[in-house]
Amino acid sequence: MILLVFSLFNNRAQSGEYMYLFALNLEPIFQLTFVSLIMLAGPAVIFLLAFRGGDL
Rank of each mutant, 00 (worst) to 15 (best):
P43M: 00
G53W: 01
A41R: 02
L26W: 15
V45Q: 05
P28H: 01
F47A: 12
L48G: 03
M19H: 11
L21S: 04
L24A: 08
P28T: 00
L32N: 14
L21Q: 09
E17M: 14
L37G: 03
L3I: 05
M19D: 15
A41N: 03
G42H: 04
E27L: 15
F6L: 15
G53Y: 00
L49H: 03
L24W: 11
A13W: 13
P43V: 00
L4P: 03
D55A: 12
L8K: 14
Q14P: 12
L4N: 12
A50R: 15
S15K: 15
T33S: 13
L48F: 08
L48E: 07
G16M: 03
A13N: 10
S7N: 02
E27F: 15
I29P: 00
M39W: 11
F34V: 08
A44P: 01
D55L: 12
Y18T: 12
P28F: 01
L24N: 12
I29C: 02
L56W: 10
P43D: 00
Q14W: 08
L56P: 02
L49P: 00
P28N: 01
A23R: 14
L37H: 02
L37E: 03
F6K: 14
D55H: 14
A50M: 09
R52Q: 09
D55V: 13
L26A: 10
I2M: 15
P43I: 00
L3S: 08
I2A: 15
S15G: 08
L49T: 04
L37A: 11
L26Y: 11
A44R: 05
M39E: 05
L49I: 05
P28V: 02
Y18H: 09
L3A: 09
I29G: 05
L49R: 08
S36A: 11
R52T: 10
R12T: 10
I38P: 01
F22W: 08
Q31S: 09
F9H: 06
L48I: 09
L24Y: 08
I46C: 13
A13D: 05
A50D: 07
N25Q: 07
I38E: 07
F51G: 06
G54L: 03
I46S: 08
S7W: 00
A13E: 06
M39F: 10
L24Q: 10
V5K: 15
G16Y: 04
G53N: 02
Q31F: 10
Y20A: 09
G42C: 06
L32C: 05
P43T: 00
L56G: 12
L49K: 07
V35P: 00
L21V: 13
A44C: 07
L48C: 07
L24V: 15
M1I: 09
L8C: 15
F30T: 08
Y18D: 05
M19Y: 11
R12Q: 13
L40H: 04
R52S: 08
V5E: 14
F9E: 03
V35W: 06
A23M: 09
S7F: 01
A44N: 03
L21W: 05
Y20I: 11
L56K: 06
F51W: 13
A23I: 10
Y18V: 11
G53F: 00
F22A: 14
L21Y: 11
G54D: 01
N11P: 15
G54E: 01
S15T: 13
E17R: 06
A41H: 02
